[in-house]
Amino acid sequence: MIGAAALALVVAIVLMLVRALSGPTLYDRVLAVNSIGTKIVLLLGVLGFLTGRPDFLDISLLYALINFVATIAVLKFFRYRSFQVPLLRRSRGRKS
């Protein structure tokens, strides 16, 4: 049954890849890549349980972190065409 879950996730990833390749706009592609990342996090966990090595969860946690940062970085790059623009907090002169 876990194998079936992994299979469903693989099929979902392949279908999402179709959207990533055919997406009419850039944002469709970024959305597809982000969604593939979510599914891969699940797939890594499921594979870990399938092979009886739940240590895979560390990798999937790391993948979740990188996935989020990558999405934001790509969006920032295509908005400003540069990574050199600071994403500033509004300065309010208030400290901790």
Partner: peptide
């Protein structure tokens, strides 16, 4: 797990 995969 299977339900989650199907939902994905």
């Amino acid at each position: 797990c299977l339900t989650g995969g199907v939902l994905a």
